[in-house]
């Protein structure tokens, strides 16, 4: 029971943080608030018993992403250009989308429901089969690495591709690296 209250409190804190991020025009403060947002979502995942996801969120969202934001902030200005104009077309797009999303909630099975399609056959199959077929104690790893090995391969490829994309946009070629180092040393 107490976990439900903690979940509700964390969800409220998440909403408050996201509003604060929106209101902030100092980019440094907004970046720090996104870190807090990630840490709060990580604690929410812990409360929902998704420890592996929480681990990832804390390491990537609150750790590396924050560092990359700060690295970007070091090369641009800290102050956002404030635009107080209300965009009518944006509002027209956002409000119906929000209503559609809230309308869509009705069809989603309630949290932890037993007739949830995931729970009816797939979870059962993994829980009963994993100890015999894979034989490692952490079910999450056995699903990610073995049952869903192709998905994880796709994920790694996505990270690799993103890395190549960043290198093409921001990375300097090897010759330029030498040029920078030479200039700094001389």
């Amino acid at each position: 029971m107490i976990v439900i209250y903690i979940n509700i409190i964390i969800l409220f804190l998440l909403i408050i943080t996201s509003i604060a991020i929106n209101q902030q025009d100092n980019l440094f403060a907004a970046t720090m608030l996104t870190g807090i947002f990630s840490l709060l979502s990580a604690s929410l995942f812990v409360c929902l018993d998704a420890v592996d996801v929480a681990f990832t969120e804390a390491a990537v969202g609150a750790g590396i992403a924050l560092i990359l934001f700060l690295g970007t902030l070091a090369s641009i200005k800290y102050k956002e250009k404030v635009k107080n104009k209300v965009s009518v077309s944006g509002l027209l797009l956002v409000i119906p989308t929000g209503f559609l999303l809230i309308y869509g909630i009705h069809d989603i099975p309630s949290f932890g429901a037993l007739d949830n399609p995931v729970q009816t056959y797939l979870a059962d199959r993994y829980i009963t089969g994993s100890s015999k077929e894979i034989g490692i104690p952490n079910l999450v790893t056995s699903v990610l690495a073995s049952y869903r090995g192709h998905d994880t391969l796709g994920e790694v490829t996505v990270i690799f591709t993103a890395c190549i994309g960043v290198l093409m946009l921001l990375g300097r070629s090897r010759g330029d690296y030498r040029g920078i180092v030479d200039k700094e040393e001389s």
Binding site: A59, N138, T141
Partner: peptide, 17 residues
């Protein structure tokens, strides 16, 4: 990662950090 929470993805991020 086989026995507790974690795995290659998290480990890579922590090692890089």
């Amino acid at each position: 990662g086989d026995y507790g929470p974690g795995g290659g993805f998290q480990a890579g991020v922590i090692f890089a950090s």
